[in-house]
Amino acid sequence: MKLELTEAVWLDERGIVTLVELAECSGLSEAELRDLVDLGALEPLNPDSSDWSFGAQCIVAARAASRLRSDFELDTQSLAVVLSLLERVQELEMELQRVHARLPRLHR
């Protein structure tokens, strides 16, 4: 069995990807990604530039978008709404985790 040693790359704001790379990683077309940006579901780091770049965490959102699009046959508009809701759910879950972490546990 072949053993493969490899360096993992973080999917967070430390990494930057181009529109082309984002399309390649997610399976969405560049046009679909542009639509998602226009609809506010994805945010480039440099919205005013003609050559967009994105934080690597966008790969996670774009991949989810790609799965949802194909599994539910969603159009871009619906996809943008779903992505915004998912983002809110995620923020609330993080907030809930923070609140739980701050709650003292009862010790016997």
Partner: peptide, 16 residues
């Protein structure tokens, strides 16, 4: 696969 996970990773983070 052997993947080196650098110090400081936290819950819910993704690596590629």
């Amino acid at each position: 696969f052997k993947a080196r996970i650098p110090p400081g990773v936290t819950d819910g983070e993704r690596l590629r």
